[in-house]
Design a protein around this nucleic acid. Structure first.
Lengths: 156, 156
DNA sequence: GCAAAGAAGTTGACAAATCAACTTTTATAC
DNA sequence: GTATAAAAGTTGATTTGTCAACTTCTTTGC
């Protein structure tokens, strides 16, 4: 049971906005935007490469956004595709270049700091409960949204 | 201690986005936008009225956004100002009109449903820990951001 | 009471996110 | 093999959110 709406909304949106803020700040020094962070992060931990669709799923972003981010990363020379250009990159996996890896490492260092700072004074047990509840709420709301959308459509 | 960055980022942003989605869906049927929800919500629970600055603080939104939302709510006839127009509303408190209250009640009903659904299968104890940790992380990240910004400025 | 400083609010310009239509590539059915 | 459908990715248009400059109003110090 959740007690108060504003607790959830403001708590979550505060964290969300601060994460965005951190991403933005760090990326500015690398000549990138905040939106690039998650892609670099996941590309770094998936050396075998990731397709645009993979990144959509991992970053929970829509494909339009991912498409633009990847185009951007390529012009910066941070990624390469594992298929020839002629194939228009359909299902082509993007991998980090050496330079891209260097940037990704910088990003990861900052992320690690943010995670450490963000998690101050929280015990392992609290953390586990927190994440359990976070995921539960996330799933519950997802279901609720889908239900809402269905009923909105059927009401038309 | 937080274990994994993506757990926090994706968990939080999933919830954040679903809350936005719920707001949007419901507001569409009232001819309003998702951004109006929190203002209606807080105006309803503060019958004495709220200034734009109050709403900034409560909604954690910047004043440009609040200013536009209030202008919008006024043209819809959902709020009134407690000071004459000539005074340009400086520090004027906005209160809900009768019609505004009606809309706010609809909004609150949906919020209640979302809160109930979102909180399924969560015990009171878990909820308390969750909110404690949520606020802690929020504060920690806020501090971290400020630190980051300071060091970014001094590096210039 | 007047000037200066500062807070409150508004507005236009810019950046980011989202949507919908579109193209390209692959898989499936015949 | 060809046609059809479906998936993957791209692009332009729209909406939303944020920043910075600006105006208006109030408070403070003289």
């Amino acid at each position: 049971m959740i007690h108060r709406f504003e607790q959830l909304t403001t708590g979550v949106s505060q964290i969300y906005k601060n994460i965005q803020r951190i991403k933005k700040l760090e990326m500015r020094s690398l000549g990138l935007k905040g939106t690039h962070v998650m892609c670099l992060y996941f590309l770094h931990s998936h050396a075998e490469g990731l397709t645009a669709a993979d990144l959509c799923a991992l970053c929970k972003e829509n494909k339009a956004g991912i498409s633009r981010i990847l185009a951007d990363l390529e012009t910066h020379g941070y990624i390469q595709y594992t298929r020839p250009q002629e194939k228009k990159r359909y299902r082509s996996k993007a991998v980090l270049t050496e330079d891209g890896k260097k940037q990704a490492k910088k990003v990861n260092r900052l992320i690690l700091r943010a995670v450490l700072e963000g998690g101050r004074d929280i015990t392992a047990k609290e953390r586990d409960i927190f994440y359990r509840v976070l995921n539960l709420i996330s799933d519950n709301l997802e279901n609720f949204c889908e239900e809402l959308e269905r009923s909105a459509v059927s009401a038309d």
